[in-house]
């Protein structure tokens, strides 16, 4: 045997390392978290009043633990348990939200000013994820319409674009996550002005946990959860339809701009006819517009199979 045929020691050692790494990561991957991340509670929000019109008394609310340990928040990691485990990686103070574009009064808000300026109400909403699971969540917030009206939208404001925070220490934004950041979402102006659309700052009467989109997020209950952008830093009113993350990703293959909950339009990879309510074993039927039929008039004359 010639010396050239002998594997150099450096490579040989690395091969061992590689094998060890492979075995180690295979083991780690096959060991799902034994215990769920410990649930941390935030400070109580002052002066929250329950809005009786959105009490949703017939539904059983999901536990604080469910709502704070089963999350989709790619900036904090792509597994459901990642956002709660990495919650500390999101820095929520200082925090500014800038409102710009087609408005008479553009403004940079400090989050504390927002919290002082709008009366916070509790609303219990159904949340339907595009992945066919759902929860019932008591949010604390105020109508998006009240917030937008403060800035005098112009007649050219046809759409509202939302941008989520990107902070370098967030584990999901480093390297490859499958989607580009910042996370972008958008609504038509009439959707944004609908009384159901909420800017949320709390959960169960407590300051919004980081993994749920602290310090301020959108909640649009008749659309799939991904439309409700988390940790918002910019709100831009504009004339053209804004690009959105899941609409843009993969040439628009993943989902449409509207993303209204619709049991008759399948996801490319699964049916949307039924959903699993977290806490229940068997699936239940998915309701059109997630049960919020009052929004149907927004889409009169629009082919919802085409504009899904």
């Amino acid at each position: 045997m010639r010396w050239s045929e002998v594997t150099p020691r450096s490579l040989y050692v690395r091969r061992r390392e590689f094998l060890k790494l492979g075995a180690g990561s295979a083991l780690a991957l096959s060991l799902p978290a034994f215990a769920r991340a410990k649930v941390e509670h935030g400070p109580k929000l002052a002066g929250v009043t329950a809005n009786p019109n959105y009490a949703l008394a017939e539904e059983k609310k999901n536990s604080f633990e469910d709502i704070t340990t089963y999350n989709n928040f790619y900036e904090l990691g792509s597994d459901k348990s990642d956002p709660s485990e990495n919650a500390g990686k999101l820095q929520t103070r200082p925090w500014t939200v800038s409102v710009e574009g087609e408005v008479g009064k553009p403004r940079k808000w400090d989050i504390e000013e927002i919290l002082k300026s709008f009366p916070i109400e509790e609303r219990v909403y159904r949340l339907r994820c595009v992945e066919a699971w759902s929860m019932v969540i008591p949010w604390d917030g105020f109508p998006l319409a009240d917030f937008l009206k403060k800035h005098d939208p112009t007649s050219r404001a046809k759409y509202v674009a939302f941008e989520s925070a990107v902070q370098p220490q967030m584990p999901g934004v480093k390297g490859y996550a499958g989607i580009p950041f910042p996370y972008l979402e958008g609504l038509r102006i009439d959707e944004a002005m609908h009384p159901l659309s909420l800017l949320v700052v709390g959960l169960y009467g407590e300051a919004l946990p980081n993994q749920d989109g602290a310090p301020i997020r959108l909640v649009v209950p008749w659309k799939y959860g991904f439309k409700s952008a988390k940790s918002i830093v910019k709100i831009r009113l504009q004339e053209s339809q804004p690009p959105t993350t899941w609409n843009q990703y993969g040439g628009g293959a993943e989902y449409g701009f509207y993303a209204n909950v619709n049991p008759d339009v399948d996801h490319p990879r699964w049916s949307q006819a039924r959903e699993r309510r977290i806490g229940e074993l068997l699936r239940r039927k998915t309701l059109m517009f997630n049960g919020y039929s009052e929004v149907a008039s927004l889409y009169a004359g629009l082919d919802l199979r085409k504009f899904y």
């Binding site: 769920r36 089963y70 348990s81 699971w133 699993r276």
Partner: peptide, 23 residues
């Protein structure tokens, strides 16, 4: 053991599906 100790998380059916498929 995980199923018995609610270690499968908020959506145990999904977790079990993933774990069995992965195995």
């Amino acid at each position: 053991v995980q199923a018995a100790t609610s270690g499968l998380g908020a959506n145990p059916v999904e977790e079990l599906l993933n774990d069995l498929g992965y195995t």
